[in-house]
Design a protein around this nucleic acid. Structure first.
Lengths: 335, 335
DNA sequence: GTGAAAGCGCTAACAA
DNA sequence: TTGTTAGCGCTTTCAC
């Protein structure tokens, strides 16, 4: 049977307080002898303290909720891994939740996490969300936004990337490579991330005296299927273009597939630029030029920030904006 | 402040017992009036019961631990998603743990999960593991093995794939396509999975009177880097071969990269076969013929099985062996 | 139909 | 340096 702190106390001939103190490394006031004896007894009996019971009194569970759209989307495993690594290093566990960008699911998960009394939540919000998480405010659970920036009054911190800058640098690179008619294939424009990228793209065109037109912005979703369909759509429209700036790598991958099927040479006929730098992008043919996001780091930092809030009791720490970096590979470099 | 069951009871003018029964849907013996009144009060006050306190008495946390090598390896997000979907459907949460196949990390995570009193564990064991999880036996926490089959006395169930059959079918396909000198590039042969695949490969050769030789088995790890290096190694050795059976898709992807770099045409000069059917395999060029594992289903079924054990109190259910399926794409079909 | 009271395993004042 | 004791918020017998 499972032993409790009482059993250990009895076995060692001490009080539960003493055992408790030893478990929690508050040896300050316990003699070496007692400490060693108790530790030995715990070991010998494979004693495992119940964090449940502990949590009930301390109000801390050492558990963090991670809410993301979909772990199968290659962007998120890296984020999750960064988060989990830091969590684990600090003695926290991670509960993972897939929402498919469905607000109802998000709400359900938040409720579950509140019931479970997680210490905090890392959240990649769906684009439509504008809620302010009153459940969390009520339960006083801090929430750190990662990747997606949304409004909300109870948000403790945000970890994002400078999407404007990334898109600007990427588009500038395309122009410098000699591409002039650049179509922007984006996911939904209903969120700040996409809008920032759109503006970065605009600014680069502007600076090089290329006229921006909404006809060259094609909005869909951040999936490879969309990239594939978008290209076929463009081709059917007989649009004049020599480069594609894709809202993310998945879109770029779908786009490349469609281009290849139509015997369009990359990068000679058409240059392709992505965003994210997921693992596949290095592997596909041609290798994808893309704007690398520090995805792992975002996950890592988000947990770090959350724990800072949790343990230093600082209600609000400053937001973090990470810098993306252009990674030039073969999909945009002719000859 | 956060309300407790006592507050609700006081507000409603009833006892905590009554409230508790209503929370847990044991209306049988509570009048409709009281029930409705209490429910309204809970709603109005945003009352959220504490599962921590509940767990302390019920000994159930409605939480499952998922121990995998690495969520970044594209095989595992799908598995995790299948597991999480089923868990969520049944009201459970999933704690995710990345071990990097490191036994010490595995042990640490198991200890953490025991402390957290998870109801059960889904485990993809590292190849070296032979332990019998005495910690879990002690705590009476069921464990379901998924994907990797290892020995151990406290294992409640296993969800695996018929690796022998898959490798057999795949190799047979290669032979039927006219390939005769098939090299098997595998990950570590220290686990049953790899061994089963090796034996399936052997059997297919055997049936077609092709002599098996260990010289055609190259052992490394299940990573794309290994596929890449293995091909370069083979080439340097001037080995005579016309097809590669790769232990998994990642290896195949690395191998394809190396072949391309050496101007070897796929599938004309060399056919390439993978194992797994991860998402990328459809996307790379050429599209990879592979033995598809029902990865999502494995995750889903593993949680299903675990919950069956948990809720039906059946100590041990029968193991599940899923059937892999050959998916023929362009990497093995000439002309 | 409803409530009183004990107790889950632990921590943390406060005493000794 | 160590122990006593009162909870944490809930469920569950058992009594009314």
């Amino acid at each position: 049977m499972k032993l409790t702190i009482k059993d250990i106390a009895r076995l060692a001939g001490v009080s539960t307080t003493t055992v408790s103190k030893i478990i929690n490394n508050k040896h300050d006031s316990i003699s070496k002898d007692t400490t060693e004896k108790v530790i030995k007894i715990m070991k010998d009996n494979n004693y495992v303290p119940s964090t449940i019971a502990r949590s009930l009194v301390t109000k801390k569970t050492k558990t963090i909720g991670l809410i993301i759209p979909d772990i199968v989307n290659p962007f998120f495993p890296e984020l999750a891994r960064g988060a989990e690594d830091k969590a684990n290093k600090e003695g926290y566990n991670l509960i993972i939740c897939n929402t498919d960008e469905d607000i109802q699911k998000e709400d359900r998960y938040v409720a579950m996490l509140v019931e479970k009394m997680v210490d905090g939540i890392i959240f990649t919000a769906s684009s439509q969300r504008v809620d302010d998480f009153k459940l969390l405010k009520n339960a006083n659970i801090p929430i750190v936004l990662v990747d997606r920036d949304v409004k909300g009054s109870h948000i403790s911190s945000k970890i994002t990337v400078d999407n404007f800058m990334g898109a600007y640098e990427g588009t500038k690179h395309l122009i410098e490579q000699g591409y002039k008619k650049i179509i922007f294939i984006t996911g939904s424009l209903k969120n700040k991330t996409s809008l920032d990228r759109l503006n970065g793209y605009k600014k680069a065109l502007d600076e090089h005296n290329i006229k921006f037109s909404y006809e060259n912005v094609i909005e869909g979703s951040y999936k490879s299927e969309w990239g594939y369909n978008a290209v076929n759509f463009i081709l059917k429209q007989n649009k004049n273009f020599d480069a594609l700036f894709c809202g993310n790598d998945l879109i770029a991958i779908g786009a490349i597939k469609a281009l290849k099927e139509n015997d369009i040479k990359i990068p000679q006929d058409v240059g392709v630029l992505g965003f994210d730098d997921i693992y596949i992008s290095r592997i596909i043919d041609p290798q994808l030029t893309t704007i690398k996001q520090p995805i792992y780091e975002m996950g890592y930092k988000s947990v770090q920030t959350l724990i800072d809030i949790l343990e230093k009791k600082s209600k609000k720490v400053k937001d973090i904006v990470l810098v993306p970096k252009l990674v030039i590979r073969s999909s945009t470099v002719k000859g």
